[in-house]
Design a binder for these strands. Structure first.
Length: 415
RNA sequence: CGGGGUAUAGUGCAACGGUAGCACGAAUCCUUUGGGAGGAUUUAGUCCCAGUUCGAAUCUGGGUACCCCGACCA
């Protein structure tokens, strides 16, 4: 992508009403734009990152046999009434159609998935079954905050599993737990993310959250200094000792919930009377689990944990581009070489952002640091004297010169 | 929903009740180009509605939006 052709621009200063580090950087660098509190547009860079996050999640969920679908946003009132959430779910956005038909905007999709899967599952032979979607969710948050970390409209991957018995649910639950950590690892968040015990709401004793440590977090968690299991403050009173290893030493941290997993059991299959016929011919309620992870919130969390005073430092796998190619001293000769290199790299399948703008070097470097692409390649009069380009990793000071001829080989070992 | 704060040009900041100004951005031209360049010319604004006043960005009342803290968060 040529930088001169992108319609959005970087800002030298962040809007003064954004206090949150990730929001300030994402807005300044042109990844997102605010429409209103808790409602954001994803700009070209931001969308690329979001799609990379979605892709990683999709790949890993497909690995554990999830099948992707797309459910509607408009969910009829009667579905919510069946589970009691039309009245009890305070964040539900309610809308009314022309024929006075009422809907809740999808904020979570148990009310859609349970009756949907019910249509196709009738026997133990149809189970287990794993279905997921990546969809925009709507929640009428009392208070949206912290840029894209807590919004009224956000991106969410929700996976639902259906089982004949709790043992099978437990088995899959553990699998998803591991998969979530794989996903977080690929996004550069594994080291600062803890599995955290949290309340399970009304349907099970507890659930697990995936909590990433950051000062921007809204939750307080207590991390066992011995085994690393975390406990959410909301239930800490119940656990003077670590339920995993029995030790009593905890450290208190602020964290943000990037994912969670629930054993729903029959909470949502019962209202729909979603039963299956077991081997012995008896009818039983289907056992259900649900597993959420939020791509847009992950994006904010990654920025929150990967930045310096100059800007964002994207982890490789989710950076909007792999390479930021910058030409400085905009002579025709340099432009020609840079343009050719840009085309060659793209032919090799390298994702390149090419700064072909007529700007001074300082401004281009400042923008590159702000945008945070992992690898910066500079072409200038100086580097061309030895037929080289200059290579630098974002977040490191070290600079090295590589012959243009050898660049593609160099990148193979890098990208 | 309770508490606090803010609202002036695209962004960041000024302006005693008396001609709304500065920097960055954007536009044109020239000179520049290795860490946010220089000159010349231009562009664009007082959140909304009332009130007080000869006169309101400024004072008063109401509204709205945004930010922060708390409560809330399947």
């Amino acid at each position: 992508m040529k930088q001169s052709q992108i319609f959005c621009k970087t800002l030298r200063q962040a809007p003064k009403d954004e206090k949150c580090v990730s929001a300030r950087l994402l807005i300044r660098a042109g990844f997102v734009a605010k429409l209103s509190a808790g409602v954001y547009t994803f700009l070209p860079f931001g969308l690329r990152v979001l799609e990379k996050i979605q892709k990683i999640i999709s790949e890993e969920i497909e690995e554990i046999n999830g099948k992707r679908i797309l459910m509607p946003v408009l969910v009829p009132k009667k579905n919510w009434q069946k589970t009691g959430r039309w009245d009890s779910f305070k964040e539900l956005f309610k809308v009314k159609g022309k024929n006075n038909q009422e809907y809740g905007l999808g904020s979570t999709h148990e009310e859609v998935i349970a009756p949907l899967v019910q249509q196709y599952v009738s026997s133990y032979k149809d189970l287990p079954c794993y279905v997921y979607q990546i969809q925009t969710k709507f929640r009428d948050e009392i208070r949206a905050k912290s840029g894209i970390l807590r919004t009224r409209e956000f991106d969410m991957k929700d996976l639902y599993s259906f089982h004949t018995d709790e043992k099978d649910l437990d088995r899959y639950y553990e699998k998803v737990k591991n998969t979530y950590f794989k996903i977080l690892k690929r996004m550069g968040l594994r080291a600062q993310t803890y599995l955290c015990l949290a309340s399970g709401g009304s349907f099970s004793k507890f659930s697990h959250e995936f909590q990433t440590i950051t000062p921007a977090g809204e939750d307080i968690i207590y991390i066992c200094e011995n085994c690393g299991l975390a406990i959410n403050q909301e239930i800490k009173a119940e656990y003077p000792k670590c339920p995993e290893c029995g030790k009593k030493e905890f450290k208190k941290e602020k964290a943000i919930e990037v994912g969670n997993i629930f054993k729903l059991k029959t909470k949502y299959t019962e209202p729909f009377n979603f039963q299956f016929i077991d081997k012995d011919g008896s009818k039983k309620l289907v056992i259900m689990g649900c597993y959420g992870i939020g791509p847009s919130r992950l994006m904010g969390t990654i920025v929150e944990t990967h930045n310096d005073e100059k800007g964002i430092i994207w982890p490789k796998e989710i950076a909007p581009f792999q390479v930021h190619l910058i030409q400085i001293e905009n002579t025709q000769k340099i432009k020609n070489v840079a343009e050719k290199l840009y085309n060659d790299l793209q032919k090799q399948g390298v994702e390149v952002l090419y700064d072909d703008r007529d700007k001074t070097a300082g401004e281009k470097f400042a923008d590159a640091d702000l945008i945070g692409i992992p690898l910066r390649i500079v072409i200038s009069k100086k580097t061309l004297e030895t037929n080289c380009v200059e290579i630098k990793n974002r977040g490191e000071e070290k600079i090295q010169l590589v012959k243009i001829k050898e660049l593609s080989q160099f990148l193979k070992s890098y990208v």
